[in-house]
Every structure is written in C-alpha cells, then in structure tokens.
C-alpha cells in the first residue's frame, strides 16, 4: 500500500453526522499528523481509513485492543498471525518458537520493556500497555501506520523514543496527536480537523504552533 486517495468519507452517530463528507489523500512517504480538539472526529477518521484500506495497515487504536489475558509476547505476535498456518499459531500459543521469541524480544528491547515478556497485559500500567500495542503495530510491519494518540500515556523521553521508532519503521503514516510540538517535529504534513471537517491542511514546514492552536 503506497499512497491513497479516498473521497466521500462520512460517519454518523445516532443519526447525526459527525464526520465529512470529506476527501482525504496521502502520498507515499508522507507522515501526517491529525490535530484538533477531542471529539472533532480524528478517531473516526482513522477508523474509516482502516476500513477503506481493508485492514492493510498497522493500527494502534486509542483503546489499544489488547487481549488482556495473554502475555506481552502473544499480544505482539498477534501482529503476524496471517503469516503462519493455523497449526503454527496454535502451537505458539502453548509454546512459542525460538525465532519468534527472539524477534519479539529484540523489538521489546527497543521499547525498553523486555523484562515484561511473559507478563499478561492485564497487569501492566497504562504506558506499558500502550507500548505493547505499538510493539504489535511494529511487528505487524505494514507499509502504512494508523495510530490514534499512541503516546498519550507516555512521558517525554519515552514519547520521543517511540515517535522516532515509528518514523523509522513506517514510510507512510497517519497519526492523531494532541501534542502540537510533537506533531510539528514528527509530521511532514499537518491536517487539522474541526467539527468533522478539514480545517487546515499544510506541510508542517510552513506552520508554527501558533497556527495550530486556534483549532483547540
């Protein structure tokens, strides 16, 4: 999946339109930050894109979508379930293969949570859980990253580390961010959403924090 162009994106909730209709396009290699007040429609837009690309993307939803009863390893491994036959996956559930263990372990090392390898995600803190969801997205290794507030529960240094990792691994990405500075430093293009419509769409090089603030 390289770039894409979708038009007629709309969403309604309870009979009331909350998003669109709008047209949304991404070029290959672009890193897009979605900004705007909470409730403006960023999460809805990310969900819509995920549907439109038929799931061919690494997704980090706001609610993370972790299987709480499974340990960190399996929650990350879920990202590649489609690459193995059923028997392989079933066996992995009981006893993972060494090469998968090593791959996931090195990924977690990058996110500095290697020691949580066998801990069920239910017993992790909010920030740790967020990193597991990110690890899953990284392990999934799709061309496109769709992430909804992926660093909301992380502190400064860790947030930077994660954003860098995402920037490196994914050529194309659409990330909803509430941190304006982070958006400016991460993205190549900023899209502001207001009341379900695109209120701003500029390359980040042409913007400053002051240009974005009115959206909030």
């Amino acid at each position: 999946m390289a770039g894409f162009q979708f038009s007629g994106l709309t969403a309604s909730f309870g009979g009331e339109r909350v998003l669109g209709p709008l047209t949304f396009g991404v070029e290959e290699g672009e890193r897009i930050a979605l900004v705007g007040r909470s409730g403006a429609g960023k999460s809805t837009l990310i969900k819509l894109i995920h549907e439109r690309v038929d799931g061919h993307a690494s997704l980090v939803p706001q609610d993370l979508g972790l299987v709480n009863a499974l340990p960190v390893f399996h929650n990350v491994f879920i990202g590649q379930l489609d690459r193995h036959p059923t028997w392989y996956n079933s066996l992995t559930l009981i006893r993972p293969f060494r090469k998968d263990r090593d791959a996931v372990r090195s990924l977690l090392r990058e996110l500095s949570m290697e020691e949580k390898f066998w801990i069920p995600t239910a017993s992790l803190s909010g920030g740790q859980r967020q990193r597991v969801a990110i690890a899953r997205a990284l392990y999934r290794n799709a061309d496109l990253l769709l992430a909804d507030e992926p660093i909301s529960a992380l502190d400064g240094p860790m947030a930077n580390l994660i954003m860098e990792a995402l920037q490196q691994r994914f050529t194309t990405s659409v990330v909803a961010l509430h941190d304006v500075d982070m958006a400016l430093s991460f993205a190549t293009r900023i899209i502001g959403i207001q009341d379900g419509q695109i209120a701003l769409d500029e390359p980040s090089s042409r913007l400053t924090a002051a240009d974005i603030t009115p959206l909030y």
Partner: peptide, 9 residues
Amino acid sequence: LLPPGTGVI
C-alpha cells in the same frame, strides 16, 4: 485489528 488473511481458528 488482526491482519487481514488471519485464519479463523
């Protein structure tokens, strides 16, 4: 959010 193509089982 499973990758498309993941087996049902």
